[in-house]
């Protein structure tokens, strides 16, 4: 369970590696599908959404840290970040904005991983204390 943050980070890095090459290893979308999807939003609009998303994701993780909640959303963040890569790709602005999405993803997933690691370390310590108490009572 505590490895979830690392798995999410590994998945994000793998997706980022493909995105760094502007998704060239993947087959290109046919023009008909592109036409069906419509005109992509402007790079400025996507950047605004990325700032809002990063801000709210950080606030959400910090509030979870504060409340000691055991909820995690690392994989959903990987999904959102991949969507940003896709939007920038279709807006033909991925080259300019790749590192911004990568920095946002790295920050969010590092915070989430730290939260997961901290939470489970605490849980393990509590379990260990209970086990020590049981062991002590057995000896007495």
């Amino acid at each position: 369970m505590s490895n979830r943050g690392l798995w999410a980070m590994a998945l994000f890095i793998a997706i980022s590696t493909v995105a760094l090459r502007d998704f060239s290893p993947l087959p290109t979308l046919p023009e008909t599908v592109r036409a069906l999807l419509g005109r992509p939003p402007s790079a400025l609009m996507i950047s605004g959404a990325l700032v809002l998303y990063t801000f709210s994701a950080i606030i959400l993780i910090l509030s979870r840290m504060m409340s000691g909640s055991g909820q995690f959303g690392a994989f959903s963040h990987v999904g959102y970040l991949s969507a940003f890569y896709a939007f920038y790709h279709f807006a033909r602005a991925l080259d300019e904005n790749f590192w911004a999405v990568f920095a946002a993803g790295f920050t969010i997933l590092a915070l989430e991983s730290y939260h997961i690691w901290n939470h489970y370390s605490e849980e393990i310590r509590k379990e260990q204390e209970v086990l020590d108490a049981i062991e002590q009572s057995r000896r007495d």
Partner: peptide
């Protein structure tokens, strides 16, 4: 991490 990451983005 949160402040620096956000500022970098």
């Amino acid at each position: 991490l949160a402040v620096t990451g956000f500022v970098i983005v």
